[in-house]
Simulated assay, not measured.
Amino acid sequence: YVKNRAWSAGALIAIACEKIAFTESGSMGAAEPRPMEEKNVSALRAEFSATAERRRRNPQIAEAMVDQSVEIKGLKPRGKLLTLTASQAKKYGYADFIANTYDELWRAINVKEPKVVNEYLNWSERFSQITSDPTYSFLFLMGGLLLLFVELQIPGFGIPGILGITLIVLTFVGNYLAGLAGIEAILLLIGGIILLLIELHTPGFGIPGITGIVALFISLYMVLGGGINAIRSIILASILVVGIIILFIRYLPESFVWKRLALKEATRTDAGYTVVNVQQDLVGKEGISVTLLRPVGIVEIENRRYDCLTEGEYIPPGTRVIVTKVIGNKIFVRKIS
């Protein structure tokens, strides 16, 4: 019963039915596949044609809903997709009845006291409907990548990283619930995240980080359906993320909001400003790194822990270090060779 639209897969479902009823505002067709590759068009065109023949309907009309190259004189020119209105569907044998209400439909098919069962989407179906939508998937992907980039620029692991991973996971889970992604894509995602977490606690950037990034991109490729469209979405999301970061760095310092939040003048000691807890007496003292310094971390000096920085090098936990200088409340250390 085509109450409003039977487009795309809906058209194939309708054609497969023994009887088709339309409301006067109903329409059917527009079933061109995405991505629109010759292989997909050919396969779907044959599917529509065979289904129409089985129900003794004109197969050429069904093919014209899928393939723009099909021409039907008086109905569809070459280069356009076919979408039938209710009156056209009735004329060409793709509608058996025109019924604007259920009562009219029951009378048309001669059914008395019908039992009508209404089906509604549950929470998981609604969730997957939203998160598996290509537009939302793309936005979640772009937002997740942007937040992960922000997380990599700050010490530790905090809210940007959690939100970034959450958005990417939402993309995967939604497509998995919708049946568009398999368990292998989820496993690649988990493996990629684990490898990146290992990389965060390893000096430098090596095999875990590279392998983790590759695993994430492969899993994204799979969950977005593969093919050129998936590659295009990933590349476009990456370009947009980089563009937003560049705009953020370029224009944020000059924005009204930033000027309201940031100090307009430097707080120099000669202007009367002082820094709390200046630890100049720590210069030259030795200690042990408690966490990875990348370049920020925790160092234990004389049984007391301090937040310290290196001058660019990565220092693993358990390494002997020496305090080289103290600027304000920033304590700089280097590895003792």
Rank of each mutant, 00 (worst) to 15 (best):
I245V: 14
L247S: 03
G284T: 06
I61H: 09
V321H: 02
K90A: 15
T202G: 03
G272F: 00
G225T: 07
R45G: 04
F332S: 10
L197I: 08
N303F: 07
G243N: 14
E125S: 09
Q68L: 09
Y120A: 03
I72S: 05
T274E: 10
T319C: 09
S87F: 09
L180H: 11
N110H: 08
V321M: 04
G318R: 02
V116T: 03
V117A: 05
L148H: 03
F149R: 15
G164P: 08
I186Y: 01
E313A: 13
L196S: 00
D307T: 15
V275H: 06
Y92A: 01
Q88T: 06
T310R: 09
I244E: 06
L187A: 07
Y94S: 03
P33H: 07
G272S: 08
P316S: 06
I98F: 01
I198Y: 07
E311N: 10
A271P: 09
A9R: 12
S25A: 09
V173M: 12
K39D: 12
E184Q: 03
A185N: 00
I301E: 05
G226E: 04
I98L: 04
I244K: 04
K259Y: 01
V223M: 07
S8E: 08
P77W: 01
I213L: 02
I20M: 03
L163Y: 01
R107T: 10
G287R: 05
I183M: 15
R56N: 11
A30Q: 05
P33R: 11
S233V: 11
Y251H: 13
E32R: 08
L12Y: 01
Y102H: 09
V150D: 00
V278P: 10
K80F: 01
P33V: 10
D103S: 13
T267Y: 03
P155H: 02
L187S: 08
K330M: 12
Y273A: 13
T274H: 15
V242Q: 06
N100L: 04
L216Y: 02
T171N: 13
M28K: 01
L247K: 05
L263T: 15
A185W: 00
Q129N: 10
F157I: 10
T85I: 04
A262D: 01
I130F: 13
A46Q: 06
G284L: 08
N303T: 11
E18Q: 13
V117K: 12
L84E: 02
R107N: 10
T269W: 04
T269G: 06
F97I: 11
S337C: 02
D281K: 12
I288T: 06
I207M: 05
G243P: 07
T101V: 10
S289D: 02
A95T: 08
S87T: 11
W258Y: 14
